[in-house]
Structure formats: structure tokens, C-alpha cells
Design a protein around this nucleic acid. Structure first.
Length: 270
DNA sequence: CCGCCGCCCTGCTTGC
DNA sequence: TGCAAGCAGGGCGGCG
């Protein structure tokens, strides 16, 4: 599932491939994907727009348009944004297709149909509910302490809360907690100062390393070129039920926390 | 404000 | 063997 590193990789890929292109026509095959503006107005509003920048905020891919508007895409579980050449055949689950004037097109594809695309007007506060960027300068150990302090929720649930920190999903929450040697079900506010230090560090390190490797292709994530990432090959706990912990040798377990599968090591995460 | 639950979807796994 | 039921999961709205 696309989390911060995967979305970052996609946004960078799109920066290379579609910035400067003009949208000629938009097809919306599955209406609920386009949440704003609704119906045919979504497609109409995009026609004639030029893409001037591609970037990421949390798990959202943001395409800045020449008019000052923004196309914001949430990929959710299995969503893909794929750039296709003029002669390419149909792509599976192509719910929204942006046709550019040069014949290439950008396909939003998703098996589950959970993804969303929103056209945001200039100045419209679309990301007010999103938390701090974990790879941004303001995400200091002190800032992290402030986010965590007083919270009774399990630390993993807090890492997944996009209103607190934006971009961490199930894979990197599990991985960061393993690196920091912290049990996922620990109440966040009860963590010691040294634990919080390690966790802050682990979050940044894991996300940076995953970005470097082009993300994790555990299910069906691929980048804007349709290529797989590399971080799935170096995961320590995620999806590794029964495999030995690389640090202490005990078997990795899977529990359910907040309704989400959670992989961790009972031997060295405390 | 905070935390919890159910829903949206569909491919895959499980069980009879 | 075949088919139905169950499960997974990010974000969001509803509820207490």
C-alpha cells in the first residue's frame, strides 16, 4: 500500500514525466473516485489545465496546475498513478484517465475503488487536517514529544494517525517500532524519553531509506513507470510472521491492533 | 477533544 | 470439486 516513500517516489516520477503537459480530456469511469467537483464538472474543470508541479503531502500526490488549482489524489490501498504512452493499450482498473495533448495519458488505477481525487481551488485549505511531515525540518525530537505526550492510545495507532503525523502507514509503523525496539501496544504517552528519541530517529531513518530504495512493493505497489520498489527486500518485521528476528532470533509474531495487522518481535521490542 | 467502530470494495483464503 | 463466507485495509463519518 502506498505510504510516504511510495507516494514520494510516484510524485517524483510524475515530476519527470508529466510536468509541462496540458490536459486535453478526462475520462471518469468510476464516478465516486472524483469527489470534488462532482460528476462531469470534475472532468470539464481539468480540461485545458497544464501541470506545473508534482509533489507529495502525507500520502497524497499533489499536482499543481497552471491556474493555481490542485489535483490531489489519495491512492489508499492498491491505487496507482501510471503514465502511459500514446499507443499503449487499456490498463486494468483504469477508473480515471487524464489524456494529455501529446497523446500520453495518466491513469488512476485501483482494484479496490477506495482512492479519491479532488480538485482544489486556489487558497482552499485542503490539508488542514494533516499532521506534521516526518521528513520535514519542523519534525524535531521535541515536536515528536509534544505529539506523543499525554496520549493513552497505543503508540502504533498514534503513528498511523494522519492528523498527528502525515504519511506513515502500516508497513513503516511496524518497521520503525522494530528499529526503536518498542512494543506496538505501548501507550504512547508512557514512553520514556530515550524510547521517544529512538523512535523519532527510527521513523526518519526508515522513511529516508525506503525513499532511497523506491518504496516497498509488498502487494502491488509500482511507481509512475510501473516499476517495483526495493524496500520489501529489507523489511525486518512487516509480513514476516514466523521468521526469525534479525536482532534476537525469536519468531516474528502477528497481532491485531486497532483493527490492523501488526508484526513485531516479542523478544526485543519492549 | 478523544477514541472506537463500521463502511467502502474486491481478490484471495478458508471451510464445509 | 465447488461455492459461499470471511478477511484485509486507509480514511472518513458517526457515535458515545
Amino acid at each position: 500500500m502506498p505510504e510516504l516513500p511510495e507516494v514520494e517516489t510516484i510524485a517524483r516520477g510524475l515530476a519527470n514525466k508529466i510536468v509541462g503537459k496540458t490536459i486535453a480530456r478526462v475520462d471518469v469511469a468510476w464516478k465516486p473516485i472524483a469527489v470534488a467537483p462532482k460528476g462531469v464538472r470534475f472532468a470539464r474543470a481539468l480540461e485545458g489545465e497544464r501541470v506545473v508541479r508534482s509533489w507529495r503531502r502525507g500520502k497524497y500526490v499533489v499536482l499543481d496546475l497552471a491556474s493555481g488549482r490542485r489535483l490531489v489524489t489519495s491512492l489508499r490501498m492498491t491505487g496507482r498513478l501510471i503514465v502511459r504512452a500514446a499507443g499503449d493499450g487499456p490498463y486494468p482498473y483504469a477508473h480515471v484517465v487524464l489524456h494529455f495533448t501529446d497523446g500520453t495519458h495518466l491513469v488512476f488505477s485501483e482494484m479496490r475503488k477506495f482512492g479519491r481525487m479532488r480538485l482544489v481551488e486556489p487558497g482552499e485549505p485542503w490539508d488542514a487536517d494533516l499532521g506534521i511531515e516526518p521528513l520535514g525540518k519542523p519534525f524535531t525530537p521535541q515536536a515528536f514529544n509534544g505529539i506523543v505526550s499525554g496520549r493513552t492510545t497505543p503508540v502504533k495507532a498514534l503513528l498511523l494517525d494522519q492528523r498527528r503525523i502525515a504519511g506513515i502507514g502500516n508497513i513503516y509503523a511496524c518497521e520503525a517500532l522494530w528499529v526503536a525496539r518498542i512494543r506496538p501496544d505501548r501507550p504512547a504517552g508512557a514512553l520514556t524519553k530515550p524510547s521517544l528519541r529512538r523512535l523519532h530517529r527510527a521513523i526518519v531513518d526508515v522513511l529516508l531509506e525506503a525513499c532511497k530504495m523506491g518504496g516497498s512493493s509488498v502487494d502491488d505497489y509500482v511507481d509512475a513507470d510501473g516499476l517495483r520498489g526495493g524496500f520489501q527486500n529489507v523489511l525486518s518485521v512487516y509480513g514476516r510472521l514466523g521468521r526469525p528476528c534479525a536482532r534476537c532470533g525469536k519468531s516474528i509474531v502477528r497481532t491485531v491492533l486497532g483493527g490492523r495487522g501488526t508484526w513485531w518481535c516479542r523478544g526485543c521490542q519492549r
